[in-house]
Design a protein around this nucleic acid. Structure first.
Lengths: 169, 169
DNA sequence: CAAAACTGCTTTTATTTCAAAAGCAGTTGC
DNA sequence: GCAACTGCTTTTGAAATAAAAGCAGTTTTG
């Protein structure tokens, strides 16, 4: 344990863990993109470089935000899993997405998920969190997971529509 | 306007604005500490250095997160004000504080505000946001501001109690 | 009315972080 | 047997950060 913290303020300590330009994007890709492997995470929208990704994954594991296990189907693959700590960020992600959507120049296709999370509200967030606990922590789940697939389908619908619009124009 | 964004994702764009170790702390000190001047903000718990503070204030003004005006009572003083964009971060601050309090090693005196924000819930957040709109944007307010003073008083109670406990021990 | 304290910064220097690119020792699938 | 893929590491240069001192002007204080 390193105890060289700037202060014991909860907001400060949170920022010390994920207050940088990349950590939350990695967590976003794991939560909303269902990504679990290094190479999947490397293919982010924002183009993270491999050394930064390696560094952040290591740090996030050390901080208890992720766990790392071997993939039984491939001797070289590592599987990264969310922990309860990280799953608990879902409401913050939802708020952050809603805030960005309201005040910044977001693109339609990349903000449709944020819109659905906003309209879904805490009920949807809780269902999604339960599904993540099922997938990443092995906890029981009532019915099959559906939230991420729903969000993903909405995203693909927007992409398809925009492609069509561009083809016509 | 600079349009060299990594992606149009709302979470990414939010991080591009305040995804660093200092910006949110400055905003925290303005919201919860009522700080409006450079030298006040320089006295942060975490010890921000003056060049970083100057840089972030400039950036936050450029991004529309703050406004800067002259202080009529002092020719050298500048007054920094929150904008609606920044006031809208109050719920995110509350969530972030609650998350940090639950999962990180926070100090009691610096997390009492977060605890009160958590127990107060959205009703308290909305009241606080209205008070900030009154103080920073000049919007009308029903009754006098009270939320920040209440949070501050709770903080000072904890400090006083801890001082006493240390004196006895 | 002069000295002391205070104003929002800027400058300088040294350290740390970040970005881009290439590379590597394996493993796997065909 | 070979190409593609695995999770990274290394290297190099650019950029961000931290610590300290300084500054021109303003206001307060004795």
């Amino acid at each position: 344990m390193k105890d060289d913290h700037r202060s014991g303020c909860p907001i400060n300590l949170s920022l010390e863990v994920f207050g940088d330009k990349w950590s939350l994007l990695i967590i976003r890709d794991m939560i909303f993109g269902g990504k679990r492997h290094f190479r999947e995470l490397l293919r982010s929208q924002e183009g993270i470089s491999s050394n930064i990704l390696a560094d952040r994954l290591k740090m996030l594991v050390e901080e208890g935000m992720l766990t790392k296990t071997d993939d039984p189907t491939h001797k070289q693959k590592a599987i990264y899993s969310l922990t309860e700590m990280t799953i608990a960020l879902v409401p913050i992600m939802a708020h952050l997405g809603a805030w960005g959507r309201r005040y910044l120049r977001v693109s339609e296709e990349l903000s449709i998920r944020a819109e659905l999370m906003e309209t879904g509200g805490p009920d949807l967030w809780n269902r999604f969190m339960d599904e993540l606990r099922y997938e990443h922590l092995g906890l029981p789940l009532d019915g099959p997971p559906r939230v991420r697939a729903t969000l993903q389908a909405a995203y693909e619908d927007v992409v398809a529509r925009k492609t069509q619009e561009n083809a016509i124009a």
